[in-house]
């Protein structure tokens, strides 16, 4: 079993077996992070470039850590201070990477489809670390890993994604990944922040948060992306909080156990109250740990498959 593509561009259309392979591999790799020496030599000699055209702390650290844990050599650049700010085009950056013999490129870009463009003109494997409002596959995979770990399985779960669906690549990757893995997905958020064509997605749309709380067991609470709200998609943060915020008052009367995920960084007091973010329903810090394991799994699976030797029984070698 192996991944069919040598890139990870998105979860849309990825078969269930491949998603499960990544999650299984991540679960096998996770204990490495607990060892006295949390490092294995597997990707020695591989060179990975992290291109972050948009600001990111968590995702970039997580990828860099995953690369170091697998002993790959990695170089990172962020937009500020690189040749990008001097006006270099993406294609020229690619040509340079090619000349530097990079094996894998991890890219975050503000334009949807940028990783696909790279994949089309580069020999290296490309991993999408978030492209515009399109997909963020490793985030959805780490959400799925966390759910599998906490709740046993994904199949049959009812998952509500709450917040700014329109601008959320996390939502899009989760919609595809979770529904492929057998969960039923519902969306909840201001009507102005629902994507056009939502009826074509494999999801239901909740009328309000109370209906979602009634129905679902898992809540992926999205960050209100202040940087993308300049057009006034909702009246005020206070109104947003009262209608779509996961507040203590909302959760207190609930009789069932729920699980709350958040891709970070949290706007405390807007989409999540402090007590909820740090409370017993929250698995937010498990998500962060699992993020490293999932990214290790993706890099591991994409880095094989270059050689010519068929698998043999290593027990005899």
């Amino acid at each position: 079993m192996q991944l069919k593509s040598r890139h990870l561009l998105g979860l849309e259309g990825m078969p269930r077996e491949e998603i499960e392979l990544i999650l299984d591999t991540a679960a096998s790799l996770k204990p490495i992070l607990e060892r006295p020496i949390p490092k294995v030599p597997t990707l020695r000699g591989k060179t990975i470039a992290n291109l972050f055209y948009e600001p990111s702390t968590r995702t970039r650290f997580s990828f860099e850590l995953a690369e170091k844990r697998l002993s790959a050599d990695s170089v990172s650049f962020s937009q500020a201070g690189s040749s990008v700010s001097k006006g270099e085009t993406l294609k020229d950056t690619v040509r340079n990477l090619h000349a530097m013999k990079i094996d894998t490129v991890v890219i975050r870009h503000g334009a949807s489809g940028a990783p696909h463009f790279l994949a089309g003109c580069l020999d290296a494997s490309v991993v999408n670390a978030g492209d515009g409002t399109h997909e963020h596959p490793t985030q959805a995979l780490l959400d799925m890993m966390t759910l599998r770990e906490k709740l046993g399985k994904i199949e049959g779960l009812k998952v509500a994604i709450v917040g700014d669906i329109l601008h959320s690549r996390v939502a899009r990757s989760n919609i595809h990944g979770l529904s492929t893995a057998g969960a039923s997905v519902g969306l909840c958020g201001p009507a102005t922040l629902m994507p056009a064509g939502v009826n074509d997605l494999p999801v239901r749309v909740y009328r309000n948060l109370d209906e979602a709380l009634e129905d679902a067991d898992v809540f992926i609470v999205l960050r209100i992306q202040m940087e993308r709200q300049k057009r006034g998609m909702f009246p005020s943060l206070r109104e947003y909080r009262s209608l779509f915020g996961m507040t203590v008052e909302r959760l207190e009367p609930l009789k069932k156990e729920i699980t709350i995920l958040h891709p970070g960084p949290i706007n405390r007091g807007v989409e999540l109250d402090d007590e909820v973010a740090d409370g017993r329903h929250s698995v937010i810090l498990d998500q962060v740990t699992n993020g490293v394991a999932v990214r290790m799994a993706v890099l591991y699976l994409l880095s094989g498959g270059r050689g010519k030797i068929e698998m043999e029984d290593h027990a005899q070698a």
Partner: peptide, 13 residues
């Protein structure tokens, strides 16, 4: 994860 032939394999084991 410690194999010396990882780079030469056709598949990630």
């Amino acid at each position: 994860l410690y194999r010396d032939d990882f780079q030469r394999l056709a598949d990630s084991p």
